[in-house]
Nucleic acid binder design. Structure first.
Lengths: 95, 95
DNA sequence: TAAAGTAGTTAATTTTATTAACCAAATAAT
DNA sequence: ATTATTTGGTTAATAAAATTAACTACTTTA
């Protein structure tokens, strides 16, 4: 009934990022920063952890001469997110 | 849509404790230790934080000459737990 | 009465998360 | 045209949180 909660997802900021990416499929760094209200530094670090885990893909390009970082959730990331949902349901007494 | 998650509840062990207490109304320290598989030390500290927040009541008694610590969720704790459920639903895209 | 067990607490350490400082390039101001 | 400011980040330093290890106090067993 009470499964371990993936520590990579059980973090407010990383969960916010994944929550956004799971519906959007792709989002820019600045967009995530605005939506999550995180500092750039914190966002950069947490994105990196999600990337290291293979949960997101980080694509660095340029737009209007400025760096543009795009983030995409991976299949592994979607699976992990869905597992997290089911795991935490046990804690919350949902179905 | 994405509310702040109460940091006191957004912790695996404290959430486990609250999850158990919200259905049981009362539980002994040793029972919580077994159910959560936490070490006594960790449980002691996390229970203390929940107590400091007013989410649980900790009652120290004796049973068969041994110390017996009983834990009860408070009204405030139940409210906080229910709020947490609703808040995290936004992250999980549940209703 | 010494050893081992119960039921915890507290101090020390490790792990995580957040902030603050920094970098590289672009644009705007002087 | 070189100084200041802004954009879009990264990395190093710090703060906060969680976990473990060590300790307390008492009890039971040998």
């Amino acid at each position: 009934m009470l499964n371990e909660l993936d520590p990579l997802l059980h973090s407010q900021l990383r969960l916010s990022i994944m929550s956004l990416l799971v519906s959007l499929e792709e989002a820019e760094f600045v967009y995530l920063k605005e939506k999550t209200k995180a500092s750039a530094g914190n966002l950069s670090l947490q994105l990196d952890k999600l990337k290291e885990a293979g949960y997101v893909e980080v694509i660095k390009t340029f737009k209007n001469n400025y760096p543009l970082t795009k983030c995409k959730i991976t299949k592994k990331g979607i699976k992990a997110f869905e597992k997290y949902i089911n795991d935490i349901k046990g804690y919350l007494h949902l179905e």
